[in-house]
Amino acid sequence: MKNQEKKWISACVTVHRQKVRGGIPIFYADDDQEMKSIASLLADVVNGVPHDLGNGVYIVVQH
């Protein structure tokens, strides 16, 4: 059961440059609208689901 659902973060989209760093692809957006459209496109391209962390950061997760 434990590893039945393998998930990983394939990308991160944010409007706050200082909030995200690290080894995953990060996309910076100027405003909320751009963040949503980038997240939507990325999700379509990599077959992932965009999740809202609630602090101006979206992550695209592979389920």
């Binding site: 949503k36 999700a43 809202d52 979206y58």
Partner: peptide, 9 residues
């Protein structure tokens, strides 16, 4: 159930 960010979804 889950967290879905995008309005269209």
């Amino acid at each position: 159930i889950m967290n879905v960010a995008l309005p269209q979804l």
